[in-house]
Amino acid sequence: MLLAIFSGIIVGLVLSLLTGPTFFSLLKISISRGFKSGVYFSAGVFLSDVIYIVLAVVFSLLIGFEEQYRQIIYIIGGTFLVGIGSYYIFKKVKISNEPTKALKNTAYFFKGFLMCMLNPMMLFYWITISTKFTESYTHPELLGFLAATSLTILSSDIGKSYFVSKYRSYINTRHIMWLNKTAGVVIVGYAVFRLLIPVILKHV
C-alpha cells in the first residue's frame, strides 16, 4: 500500500505541472481575487477529479479481466498521452493578468468543477492511468494510488494559489514555458516506456 501511495504522489506531482485552462484560471483568480478564492476553485477541480476517478475505476475493473481490451486501452491511451505531452512541449505560453470578474467564493468552486467536468478528455485520461495500475495493484492499493494522486494535485493547486497570490510579480512566461516542457517530457516518457513499448514487446 505504501508503494501505491508513493507512486500516486509522484504521478500527482507530474500532473500538477500541467498548465491547461484550469491552471491559467487558477492563476488569474489567485492574482485578482486572492488565495481564498483560489482554494475554492481548486476544491471544485478536486471534486471533478474524484468523480472521474470513480468512473475510471469502475470502467477499468469491469474490463480488467480481458487482456486484449487492456492492451487496446494502452495503445489508445499511450498515443493520447504522447499527443498531450507533445502539445505541452511545443505550446506557446501567454499569461494574461487581466482581472477576473468578481464572484462569490462558492461560484469559483462551481467554476472549477464545471471547467473539468465539461472536459471529457479528463475521463479518458483517468481511465488510461487507472487501467494501467489495475494489473499492478490490488483494489485497495489502486484506490490508495488514485486517492494519493488526486490529493497531491489538490495540495499542489492550493500551494500554487498561495504562491501566485504572494509572488505574482515574479511569475513570467518563461517560468510557465519550462513547466510545460518538463511536464510534457515526463508524460511522453511515461506513455512510451510504460504503455506503448510493453504492448509492442508482447507482439514481437
Rank of each mutant, 00 (worst) to 15 (best):
M115V: 07
G112V: 05
F59D: 01
V204W: 12
L103S: 03
Y125D: 14
E141K: 09
F80T: 08
N105K: 13
K104S: 05
C116I: 10
P140K: 03
V39M: 07
S96G: 09
L47R: 01
G20W: 07
L146T: 14
S7V: 11
N172C: 00
K94I: 11
Y170F: 15
I187M: 08
G184H: 06
F41M: 12
G144Y: 14
L47V: 15
F41T: 04
I129W: 10
E135D: 02
V185I: 15
L151D: 02
I129G: 04
V54P: 03
A183R: 03
Y69E: 01
K132I: 00
M1T: 07
G184T: 05
C116Q: 08
V164R: 00
L17E: 07
V45N: 12
L123M: 07
I63S: 10
L17N: 11
L47D: 01
I5A: 15
Y87Q: 07
F124E: 10
V82M: 03
L143R: 02
Y87V: 02
L196Q: 05
R174K: 15
T134M: 13
F193G: 00
T22S: 12
L196S: 04
F90W: 15
T106H: 13
F133L: 12
Y52A: 04
S30G: 10
V11E: 02
Y190T: 05
G8D: 12
M122T: 09
L27T: 00
K111C: 01
G20A: 15
I51H: 06
K36Y: 06
L196Y: 06
G20R: 01
F59W: 07
S42D: 11
S42G: 12
V39G: 13
T182L: 14
G83N: 06
L179C: 00
F23C: 02
C116V: 08
T131V: 10
S96A: 14
I5T: 12
A43C: 12
G12A: 00
S86L: 14
G112H: 04
F110M: 05
L81I: 10
F163V: 11
S86Y: 14
K132D: 13
I53G: 06
K132C: 02
I89D: 07
M1C: 10
L61K: 11
F193M: 06
R174C: 00
G184F: 07
S136L: 10
L3A: 14
S165R: 03
A147L: 14
S161D: 01
F109Y: 08
L123F: 07
H175Y: 09
V188N: 08
S155V: 08
L123D: 03
L17W: 09
I171K: 07
K166F: 00
L13P: 06
L114G: 04
L3G: 08
S30Y: 13
